[in-house]
């Protein structure tokens, strides 16, 4: 318990000097670690620590029926739980709008990047695989979008694919890795006053007046989400896209290192 609460004045004064509360530059991430396969009962799992933010993503793959409008494709279902153990700001109970936003933004990036070929999740008529991504926030200290995306993507890349044999799902034994293509990561920026910061921590987030998440692969922007009351100029958005393409190289190499493959 070494929580630092920063006063508004102090943080603004600091940021004007080009420095963060923890001495980072405005466009730097905190230390990131990714641990893959920590929960072996799940088909895939990954724990991400981004500073004091701790997120666990678990993948389950189940037999199910296809959606009516996509009979030849499997499904992807992404949920996020802001666990009450993660912060005294989070309440137990039904999913909050915040947790739904986190899940949907992460889902969009992964879906749009084509990381999972839902066509390959088709088994036979009326039977497809549903891939569940559950993002568990264990300790909150800001930037759940980027930490959640990294955890989800790393967990997916390490997931084993169950087999459907003789009318039964086989989850153990000699299984192949789930097929993934491409890789999506995200960069989230917070605006405090007129300054823009990458990877805001919990106390910075409480002073953030606008937030922008950009999810991308090496070539394309794949999803965006602007949040909180304030605004960004077009020039700012353009600059942040540039920063995202630059920063995402490091993120992708972190994921590759943790989950293997290329």
């Amino acid at each position: 318990m070494h929580i630092v609460t920063i006063t508004d004045e102090y943080i603004k004064e600091r940021i004007r000097g080009g420095m963060r509360n923890d001495k980072r530059g405005l466009m730097s991430y905190r230390d990131i670690t990714i641990g893959v396969g920590t929960m072996p009962n799940a088909e895939g799992s990954a724990e991400v620590n981004m500073g004091n933010t701790k997120v666990l993503a678990g993948i389950k793959i189940d037999l199910s029926e296809p959606m009516r409008d996509t009979p030849g494709e499997g499904n992807l279902v992404t949920s996020a739980e802001l666990l009450p153990m993660a912060s005294d700001k989070f309440d137990a109970g039904p999913p909050s709008p915040e947790s739904i936003e986190v899940a949907r933004v992460i889902d969009r990036g992964i879906r749009a990047s084509g990381m999972i070929d839902t066509g390959s999740l088709f088994i036979e008529e009326g039977k497809v695989w549903t891939v569940y991504i559950d993002i568990y926030v264990l300790n909150y200290d800001g930037n759940l979008f980027d930490a959640g995306t990294l955890a989800s993507v790393s967990a997916l890349r390490s997931a084993r694919m169950p087999k459907y044999e003789n009318g039964a799902v086989v989850r153990e034994g000699n299984l192949q890795r789930m097929k993934t293509a491409n890789m999506c990561t995200s960069c989230t920026f917070g605006k405090i006053g007129s300054e823009i910061l990458l990877d805001t921590d919990g106390s910075e987030e409480s002073f953030t007046n606008a937030r922008l998440t950009i999810a991308n692969d090496s070539e394309y922007v794949r999803a965006m989400q602007k949040g909180i009351g304030g605004s960004f100029t077009l020039a700012e958005i353009d600059k942040l896209m540039e920063a995202t393409f630059e920063k995402s190289k490091d993120l992708r190499s972190l994921v590759t290192k943790a989950s293997g493959g290329d």
Binding site: G58, L63, P94, Y132
Partner: peptide, 18 residues
């Protein structure tokens, strides 16, 4: 007190959320 099992906690299928 809140005791919960994560939906990915078992070797079987995805658990019910909540």
């Amino acid at each position: 007190c809140r005791y919960m099992m994560a939906p990915f906690s078992s070797l079987e299928e995805h658990g019910r959320v909540g």
